[in-house]
Design a protein around this nucleic acid. Sequence first.
DNA 1: GCCAACGTTGGC
DNA 2: GCCAACGTTGGC
Length: 157
Amino acid sequence: MKRWLMKSEPDVYSIDDLARDGQTTWEGVRNYQARNSMRDDMKLGDLVLFYHSNATPPGVAGIARVCREAYPDPTQFDATSDYHDAGSKPEDPRWLRVDVAFVERFASVVPLDALKRDPALEGMAVIQKGQRLSVQAVRPDHFDHVVAVGRALGAQG
DNA sequence: GCCAACGTTGGC
DNA sequence: GCCAACGTTGGC
């Protein structure tokens, strides 16, 4: 089983929203590298660090789990959607989404600053300067370490 | 609000 | 295929 980190702006959709909804659909990925990761490597049951970007502070807010593997994102065919892509054909969809389920919410966010200062997380993608990818693979030891730090802050769910 | 980093587009 | 221009991401 693989481990992941996925970014969401909490003003748009937060870990609290996921806790409330139980599960959600991860639409709007419009980056080929992120799409390829979802299409090729993301499997049912994979665990995901739910990351709050453009937040105060930015950081890992909790854990989700993949509950449906990649399938075509219908928003690409919706002309009224922000995610519309006129170049994508229904018979050959360009963009995919997955569904994720709520697993756990940390009592507080593990801030990006703490991730950067943690020697155990050296090399983790999200702490690299200029890293914008919204779907990132995470090494199992890095995943476990972030979860341990998050749980040390307390957990609900 | 600023801006560095990065991805995409399109002229050539 | 090159690369300048442009748009977006996302920390600060």
